[in-house]
Amino acid sequence: MKQDKNIDDFSKYLLKDVGLEKPSSNFVAKVINTINIENSKVSNVVYKPIISKIGWFFIAISFIGLMIVLYFSNTESIIQFSVIDLSFFDKLMAINIFENIKLSKIFSFSFMLFSLLVLVQLHFIKKILQ
């Protein structure tokens, strides 16, 4: 028991005598500098919306304006589409360039599955990058 007490005191003497190690003199400044750099990185990334508030305002005004014009205008179309002959579209639609291409069911299903997996993968990649 006495030996335990002695070795306890002796260990305390040793550890107190050896003291603590000292880091470099500019230790605090280095850490604070790193923290400031980290902080400025965070504050520099400011996300801007693609359509600004003014942009949204003009879109809203134009939309409302269009609605009002349509509401109060005659039932007949304002722009006379009948003047333009659009019959050539029918001829164009009649040509089917994919007529001779035949896809098997297996190919169609595998293509759909592949596309679906690409979309799922995109979701995960986006998550990892964030």
């Binding site: 000292k22 850490v31 923290i35």
Partner: peptide
């Protein structure tokens, strides 16, 4: 951030040791 500098100053020796 200066308040944190105080905490670094207080604990730097033990952390380093």
């Amino acid at each position: 951030v200066n308040a944190y500098a105080f905490l670094i100053e207080k604990y730097k020796h033990m952390v380093f040791t």
